[in-house]
Amino acid sequence: MGMDKLKLTSSEIGTLWGEYVNGTMTDVVNRYMFSIIEDQSIKATFEDAIKTFAKQKKQIVAFIENEGFPVP
């Protein structure tokens, strides 16, 4: 059986779903903090976090959609 034929387990789908929900909530908070922080070194950290989650979100969405589940 090829790797493209493997299905995720319900536990894996649940974990992805939870990561998506928690990540998007954290992303909203990070974007707000980024908008109000004045210290540039701290602001850069929040910018990195926003960029990192954007990449992760694409991967999570791809996994969920490939399994035929709706994205939360």
Rank of each mutant, 00 (worst) to 15 (best):
residue 58 K to P: 05
residue 22 N to K: 06
residue 33 M to I: 13
residue 42 I to V: 12
residue 43 K to C: 08
residue 53 F to K: 01
residue 57 K to A: 07
residue 44 A to P: 01
residue 18 G to W: 03
residue 16 L to H: 07
residue 12 E to D: 12
residue 43 K to Y: 02
residue 20 Y to T: 06
residue 50 I to L: 04
residue 10 S to C: 08
residue 51 K to C: 11
residue 40 Q to F: 07
residue 50 I to S: 02
residue 12 E to H: 10
residue 37 I to H: 00
residue 25 M to I: 11
residue 53 F to E: 02
residue 48 D to H: 08
residue 40 Q to L: 12
residue 54 A to L: 13
residue 7 K to R: 14
residue 10 S to R: 10
residue 43 K to H: 08
residue 48 D to L: 14
residue 52 T to P: 00
residue 24 T to R: 05
residue 4 D to Y: 15
residue 47 E to Q: 15
residue 46 F to T: 02
residue 30 N to C: 03
residue 48 D to Y: 10
residue 26 T to M: 05
residue 45 T to I: 15
residue 12 E to Y: 10
residue 27 D to N: 08
residue 54 A to V: 14
residue 42 I to D: 04
residue 37 I to N: 00
residue 38 E to N: 08
residue 47 E to R: 14
residue 53 F to Q: 02
residue 38 E to P: 00
residue 6 L to Q: 11
residue 14 G to Y: 06
residue 39 D to N: 11
residue 49 A to Y: 01
residue 12 E to G: 09
residue 31 R to L: 00
residue 49 A to I: 07
residue 49 A to C: 05
residue 53 F to M: 02
residue 13 I to G: 05
residue 46 F to I: 03
residue 25 M to A: 10
residue 27 D to R: 03
residue 40 Q to G: 03
residue 19 E to H: 05
residue 53 F to I: 04
residue 8 L to R: 08
residue 29 V to Q: 05
residue 46 F to M: 06
residue 11 S to R: 10
residue 56 Q to S: 13
residue 42 I to E: 04
residue 30 N to D: 03
residue 29 V to I: 12
residue 44 A to N: 06
residue 36 I to V: 15
residue 21 V to E: 09
residue 6 L to Y: 13
residue 57 K to W: 10
residue 5 K to L: 15
residue 17 W to I: 09
residue 39 D to Q: 05
residue 53 F to Y: 15
residue 57 K to V: 11
residue 33 M to L: 11
residue 32 Y to R: 04
residue 55 K to S: 15
residue 21 V to A: 07
residue 13 I to S: 06
residue 46 F to P: 00
residue 15 T to G: 03
residue 37 I to C: 02
residue 32 Y to L: 05
residue 50 I to V: 11
residue 6 L to E: 12
residue 48 D to T: 15
residue 51 K to V: 15
residue 26 T to V: 09
residue 27 D to H: 03
residue 26 T to S: 03
residue 45 T to L: 13
residue 51 K to R: 13
residue 16 L to Q: 07
residue 30 N to T: 01
residue 36 I to S: 01
residue 10 S to A: 14
residue 56 Q to A: 14
residue 30 N to M: 01
residue 54 A to T: 15
